[in-house]
Computed example of a mutant assay.
Amino acid sequence: MLGTFGHIVRHNGVTGLYSGLSAALLRQITYSTTRFGIYEELKNRLTKPDPTSSTPPAPPGLLTLLGISTVSGFIGGFAGNPADVMNVRMQSDAALPIEQRRNYRNAFHGLIQMTKQEGFGSLFRGVWPNSTRAVLMTASQLASYDTFKKMCIEKAGMKDNLGTHFTASFMAGFVATTVCSPVDVIKTRIMTASPAESRGHSIAGLLRDICRKEGLAWTFRGWVPSFIRLGPHTIATFVFLEEHKKLYRKMKGI
C-alpha cells in the first residue's frame, strides 16, 4: 500500500492522491443518497407505533432490516454505477503509465468520453457485481449498525448517545469491509478492463482465472486500505445521520 502511495506521488505529485475526487462525490450523491433514502423510508413505514403504549416503537427485526437493506442497496447500485465506473477509472489512472491513461478531466468529462468511445452501455459495465456489492454493503453496513446499536442499548446498558453511535458504526464498518472485500476485487477488475480485455469474459470466467492464478488470497486483497477508507466513512456517516435525525425530530417536535 505504501509503495502504491509512493509511486503515485513520485509520478503525479500529491494531487495524484486526489484523482477521481469529482467522481467520488458524484458517486456519493447518486449511490449513497438513493440507498440511505430508500432504507430509511422503508424502515419508517415498517416501524408501526403502538397506540396503547407511550414507549417509542420498536424497530424492525434483523430479517426485516436485511430485506429492506437488500432492496435499497440493489436500487442504489444501479443508480450509482456510472459514477462508480468513473471513480474506479480515475483513481487507477494515476498508477498507469502515461501512454495508457485515459486523462479524464472530471467525472462529467469522463462520462461523456466513455459514452462517445465505448457506447452508452459502458456506463453500466460491472453493474451486476456492483449491485451485488451494493446489496452486501447496505445489508452489512446499515442492518448491522441498527443491530449493533440495539445490542449496545439493550444488552450493554448504553444510552442512545454519541458513544453508542460511534461504537455501533465502528463495528458496522468492520463487518461491511470484510463482507464486501471479495466483490470489491471483482468489481474493480471488471471496471478497469479495456473493451478488448472484457470482451468474452464472464464473471464466472474471471473468478476462475483469478483463483487459478492467485488462490483464495485474492478475496481479501486490499482489505486494510478498504477499512482505512470505509471505517472512518461509516463512523462519520452514521454519527452525522443520527445527529441529523435528532435535529429533525427537535424541529418537528417529535
Rank of each mutant, 00 (worst) to 15 (best):
P97K: 08
Y104M: 01
A95V: 00
N106I: 00
H109L: 00
N87R: 12
E118G: 10
G119F: 12
F78C: 13
D93E: 07
G73K: 09
R105A: 07
D84R: 14
P60M: 03
G110M: 06
G119V: 09
L66G: 11
L96Q: 08
L111P: 01
N130W: 15
P56A: 14
R125I: 13
D93N: 09
G119R: 13
K116C: 09
P129S: 01
G61M: 09
S140E: 02
K116G: 03
L123R: 14
M114D: 03
G119M: 12
N106V: 00
N87I: 02
Q100N: 10
G61K: 11
A58W: 02
H109Y: 03
N103T: 02
N87H: 07
F124R: 07
A95G: 04
Q141R: 09
I68V: 11
N103R: 04
G121W: 15
L96I: 04
L62T: 10
G77Q: 11
Q141L: 13
A139P: 05
Q117D: 07
G73Y: 06
P129I: 10
A107P: 00
F74A: 15
A134N: 08
D93K: 10
A134H: 05
S140F: 09
I68C: 06
S92P: 00
T70P: 07
L96D: 01
L136G: 14
Q113F: 06
F78V: 15
V88C: 07
L62K: 08
L111G: 04
G61I: 07
P59M: 15
D93V: 06
M114T: 01
R102G: 03
F120A: 10
L65R: 13
S144G: 06
L96E: 02
S144T: 02
A58M: 13
